[in-house]
């Protein structure tokens, strides 16, 4: 079933205006879309991060849903607790409504700090969705590297200079890690393909049991892109295979989109200020290496999805 924008117009606004995220931030867009994708009443938990800090500056909150924040590392554990309490109350007949649970975490709170709590919650099989909005670093504290920062990016903790070309390691494949828990649903999406993103969100929320969504959320400050390029840059990430769109539905791997002609990774690198140093002659081998890794990964993914 496809979503029709005209019908979405009547949906209640669950993340209101007046939040203080940067102009051009990807996180409020995807949060708004995800909460629009379902008709179920929602309860939201938030890990510490840009989305949490900027939407709930005391005494204001931009959330039109019940919302809870606990600590950086335990958004998944917190929502798991809320879900358990709900289950108990509905068993006792004190709550009649069917309610769904969402946790939003940034990549810092998911790839690094919160992975232990996330893994636990996925393993225990709570009926919840964990959504990672991946802006590829710790943006709330000033562009430090995280497990999601891609190779070659210059961060404040791994700056590029005479000796180094920025981050030397590859980023984790968190969607595959989540899928390795054999949960009912895990997927990867991007802002450039909104139908795909919203379908995945609906599936993830409405499935019975734990689900995981990993969504690329451009950060205009860290990536050093103009404010209005958020959607265009997501498109490039998908077209260069840097961020392939795929899902794992009850153990079946499905590739949702394959670019007709894969664009060279240079197209993605040259428009971002955080990769500026890679354009120097001496860093050419790094770009070749990145291209090779991306092609290899996509090849692996295609094989995975074909059987």
């Amino acid at each position: 079933m496809a979503f029709i924008l005209k019908e979405l117009l009547d949906k209640p606004e669950k993340l209101t205006s007046g939040h203080r995220l940067c102009p051009g931030c990807g996180a409020p867009i995807l949060a708004k879309w995800i909460m629009m994708a379902t008709d179920f009443p929602l309860v939201v938990a938030n890990a510490t991060g840009c989305l949490e800090v900027s939407t709930t500056i005391y005494p204001y909150t931009a959330w039109n849903t019940p919302w809870i924040h606990n600590a950086f590392e335990n958004a998944a554990a917190t929502i798991a607790g809320v879900e358990s309490a709900y289950k108990s109350l509905s068993r006792q007949g004190k709550i009649k409504k069917k309610v769904k649970f969402i946790a939003f975490g940034g990549d810092g709170g998911t790839y690094d700090i919160g992975i232990q709590a996330l893994s636990g919650a996925l393993e225990r099989g709570h009926d919840m969705v964990y959504i990672c909005y991946d802006n590829e670093g710790y943006m709330n504290t000033g562009a430090q590297r995280s497990g999601a920062t891609p190779k070659g990016a210059s961060t404040t903790t791994e700056p590029a200079g005479k000796v180094s070309y920025g981050k030397k390691m590859r980023h984790k494949d968190l969607t595959a890690i989540a899928a390795a828990h054999h949960i009912p649903y895990a997927a990867q999406a991007a802002l450039s393909n909104w139908q795909d993103l919203m379908k995945k969100a609906k599936k993830a929320i409405e499935v019975d049991g734990p689900a995981f969504l990993n969504i690329l959320s451009p950060c205009v400050r860290f990536w050093r892109i103009p404010d209005d390029q958020t959607i265009e840059i997501s498109k490039l990430a998908v077209e260069t295979n840097f961020w392939p769109l795929f899902e794992i539905d009850n153990g079946k791997w499905i590739l949702n989109y394959k670019p007709r002609e894969r664009k060279p990774i240079m197209d993605w690198i040259k428009v971002q200020g955080r990769y500026k140093h890679l354009l120097q002659e001496k860093n050419k081998p790094v770009i070749e290496e990145i291209q090779k890794e991306i092609d290899e990964y996509f090849h692996w993914l295609e094989k995975r999805c074909s059987d």
Binding site: P23, W63, W67
Partner: peptide, 19 residues
Amino acid sequence: GGLILDAGNAKTYKTGGWR
């Protein structure tokens, strides 16, 4: 607990001045 009981009250905070 410093709870905010008024859901969505960020609407009263105007961010238009950033523009």
